[in-house]
Amino acid sequence: MTCRDACEPGAIRFSLAIGGARPRVEAGICTGCGECVPGCPASAISIVPRPMEETADA
Rank of each mutant, 00 (worst) to 15 (best):
T2Y: 04
E35T: 09
P49T: 11
T55S: 05
T55Q: 07
P51F: 01
A11D: 04
V48K: 08
T31A: 02
S46P: 02
A21I: 06
A44I: 01
L16I: 09
S43A: 15
I45V: 03
A6D: 11
P38R: 10
S15G: 08
A6P: 06
C36T: 00
P51L: 02
E53N: 08
R24Q: 14
P41D: 12
G20Y: 01
E35W: 14
G28D: 13
V25Y: 01
T55C: 11
G20T: 03
A17L: 04
E53D: 10
S43N: 13
G28K: 13
G39D: 13
F14W: 02
L16W: 05
R13F: 10
V37Q: 03
A58V: 00
R50A: 15
P23G: 06
A6W: 03
I12F: 04
T2Q: 14
G39M: 12
A42D: 13
T2F: 06
A56F: 08
S15R: 15
A56W: 08
P23H: 03
P9T: 04
P51C: 05
E54T: 04
M1F: 09
G20K: 01
A58R: 00
R24L: 15
G34A: 14
R22V: 12
P49K: 13
V25E: 05
D5A: 15
A44R: 02
P41K: 12
E54L: 07
E54Q: 07
P23R: 01
G28Q: 12
C40G: 03
I18L: 06
T31V: 09
P23Y: 01
P49D: 14
S43W: 05
T31S: 10
C40M: 03
C40R: 03
M1A: 13
R24K: 13
G34V: 13
D5G: 07
A17S: 12
E53H: 04
R22K: 13
A42C: 06
R4E: 15
A21L: 13
C3W: 00
P49L: 10
I45H: 00
S46R: 15
G19D: 03
G28E: 15
T2P: 08
E35L: 13
E35Q: 09
R24Y: 13
R50M: 14
V25T: 03
R22G: 00
R4T: 10
P51S: 13
C36M: 01
P23M: 04
A44G: 04
M52W: 10
E54M: 08
I29V: 15
P41H: 06
D5P: 00
A11W: 07
V37F: 07
A27F: 08
C30I: 06
G39A: 14
P51W: 03
G19T: 07
A6I: 01
D5W: 06
C3H: 02
A21E: 11
G34Q: 12
A17Q: 11
D57K: 00
G10T: 06
P38W: 05
E8T: 12
C30R: 02
T2L: 14
G39R: 14
G34E: 10
A11C: 07
I12Y: 03
V48P: 01
